[in-house]
């Protein structure tokens, strides 16, 4: 798709639409993974975990560290696939543990407090992580050296658009993770317990569900997904830095609400829709008003469906 002739707006729209869909799906895959963690935690605790974006940032840095460790000047030590899988696994594990630690120390003591208290301690955690990273790793931007793993030229030229191998990797990885998550939640005992706790924590506890274990599990999975999102962001957009979690966290929150907060397929759908909405805003309206367009979409959706796209109409508890 080399520089094209300037045509009518409609022609440009049709010509660039496929490429913009690819762009939007990539962005949406990342948003969806972040939104999942938000939504899962919300589901079991009704807590807006504002430190979630920073967990994602830590994931991106862990991935960066692993990548640098296995790609010295002389070239990659293993096959690229193995390195990428390692990056994902280490980041997911690290972030999962981080999520559990955050839950244990910042949220658990506040479990029976007014709802806004953990919100503030979440902000405290977010401040702490961000500045701890800046203190130890400085405020400099780091660049993933993706090109040493995946050749920039690799990809499929569809004629009307180009799907690079990196983007394909990101989208496929995200979808695989989502399928695994669905399996965990639908088929395993812990997953079932998680759904039970989400519906009614006290009733679940009375039925013998170990609520604490479920909450730890939820934080682990949600944070691990954020870690994966961080690594995928690094692979496709290359730049990582200490402040990246802030905006990403807000996007994840938006996507989770868009889909119906607490609803897991909703978070996935919300992520993809938000990614596409932002991309289309840049592509066909204006890059300047990207966030405005995204929020207007959100507001319209919520006005039509006050509980998000897939949010269930649970009768209000009295």
């Amino acid at each position: 798709m080399h520089t094209q002739e300037v045509g009518k707006p409609m022609d440009i729209f049709i010509a660039t639409l496929p490429q913009q869909i690819i762009n939007g799906l990539t962005l949406g895959a990342v948003y969806a993974l972040i939104a999942l963690g938000y939504s899962m935690v919300y589901g079991v605790l009704q807590l807006l975990n504002f430190a979630h974006g920073d967990v994602y940032m830590v994931g991106a840095f862990i991935g960066y560290g692993v990548m640098m460790a296995f790609i010295p000047e002389s070239g990659p030590l293993f096959a690229p696939v193995i390195i990428i899988i390692l990056m994902l696994l280490v980041a997911m594990l690290g972030c999962g543990v981080l999520g559990i630690v955050i839950e244990q120390f910042a949220y658990r003591p506040l479990r029976n407090s007014p709802r806004i208290a953990p919100l503030i301690s979440a902000l405290g955690v977010s401040f702490f992580i961000q500045n701890a990273i800046q203190l130890t790793l400085t405020a400099q931007f780091r660049n993933y050296e993706t090109e040493k793993l995946i050749a920039p030229a690799a990809g499929i030229d569809l004629g009307f658009a180009r799907l690079s191998a990196t983007r394909a990797l990101v989208i496929v990885t995200a979808i695989v993770l989502m399928i695994v998550l669905q399996y965990l939640i639908k088929r395993t005992r812990l997953g079932k317990a998680m759904r039970a706790v989400a519906i009614d924590r006290e009733a679940a506890a009375m039925m013998g569900v170990n609520v604490d274990r479920v909450i730890i599990f939820t934080f682990f999975i949600g944070s691990a997904l954020a870690g994966a999102a961080g690594v995928l962001t690094g692979i496709v957009f290359t730049r990582v830095w200490h402040f990246m979690g802030f905006a990403a966290g807000l996007k994840g929150f938006t996507a989770a609400v868009l889909g119906g907060i607490g609803n897991i397929p909703g978070a996935m759908l919300g992520g993809f829709i938000l990614g596409l909405a932002e991309t289309f805003a840049v592509g066909f309206i204006s890059a300047t008003y990207k966030d405005v367009v995204a929020f207007v979409v959100l507001i319209i959706v919520l006005l039509l469906r006050p509980r998000g796209l897939l949010g269930a109409r649970i009768p209000q508890k009295v």
Binding site: F105, A106, P109, L110, S113, P114, A117, P118, I120, S121, L123, G124, V125, S126, F127, F128, Q130, N131, A132, Q134, L135
Partner: peptide
């Protein structure tokens, strides 16, 4: 070695800790 050398970052680190600790000890 570190915190007193980076006052700007340390300041925000402490604000973060302050928020967490205050909330835990005085949730209301």
């Amino acid at each position: 070695t570190r915190l007193s050398q980076e006052p700007s970052v340390t300041r925000l680190l402490f604000v973060g800790v302050l928020l967490i600790v205050l909330m835990i000890y005085r949730p209301n």
